[in-house]
């Protein structure tokens, strides 16, 4: 159980068992926040960080957690991490905090994180758990980023618009504009567009798997 190949862990998390594209976990934030590259990247990073902390904590505590209360405890750990993260963001990047809105605290309920702590971290050593968290979190963040990029380009013809939210610049950064915003397929920004584009992405990736 403990000797899982590091390489296999990384490949699994990033590609073979990619949480978003294969296991279809955490679709709610995936579809709701992927309207632009910046939002997607921010939420992806936040999820990755939460997963990392939660996985590590659960793995460290694994010998002291009793079976009966493990779920509440894991949720507690995750919720604590997310609260910390939210407060930090509110302090340092208030505009990003504002634009992510409810989806930041909702990371607590992202089934992806509980799935990793429950299925992996509580059975494995901290180093394994760290690698798993990094690989899985990166897999999720990349999928989010890809969908965000596609939706932003198709929907409003820009990439990296609003990068200032992430970097903390005070002046607005318009990002790279590819074509006029009124020529964008507004549908791509709307929730149904997220479903359609994710569906197309899954279909395109299917033969490669």
């Amino acid at each position: 159980m403990t000797d899982i190949d590091t390489h296999a862990l990384i490949v699994d998390g990033l590609w073979r068992r990619n949480p978003a594209l294969v296991q279809l976990l955490g679709l709610c934030p995936l579809l709701a926040v992927s309207t632009s590259v910046v939002d997607a990247a921010a939420l992806g990073l936040a999820t990755l960080l939460t997963l990392l902390v939660a996985n590590l904590a659960v793995s460290l505590l694994r010998k002291h957690i009793s079976e009966a209360v493990r779920l509440p405890l894991q949720i507690l750990v995750i919720a604590g991490t997310v609260t910390l993260l939210e407060l930090l963001l509110a302090a340092w990047l208030p505009r990003l905090h504002e634009s992510l809105g409810i989806f930041l605290p909702l990371i607590v309920t992202n089934c992806l994180i509980l799935a990793r702590t429950e299925a992996f971290a509580r059975h494995h050593t901290p180093d394994r758990a760290t690698i798993d968290a990094l690989a899985t979190g990166a897999g999720f963040a990349l999928a989010l980023l890809a969908l965000g990029a596609v939706r932003e380009i198709v929907g409003q013809g820009t990439v990296f618009a609003g990068l200032d939210k992430l970097t903390g610049h005070t002046e607005a950064l318009p990002g790279i504009s590819l074509f006029a915003a009124e020529h964008g397929l507004v549908l791509a920004i709307l929730p149904p567009g997220a479903f359609i584009l994710l569906g197309l992405m899954l279909a395109l990736l299917k033969p490669g798997r």
Partner: peptide, 9 residues
Amino acid sequence: AVLIVSFPV
């Protein structure tokens, strides 16, 4: 529907 949602003008 897709067109009218996307290109209302």
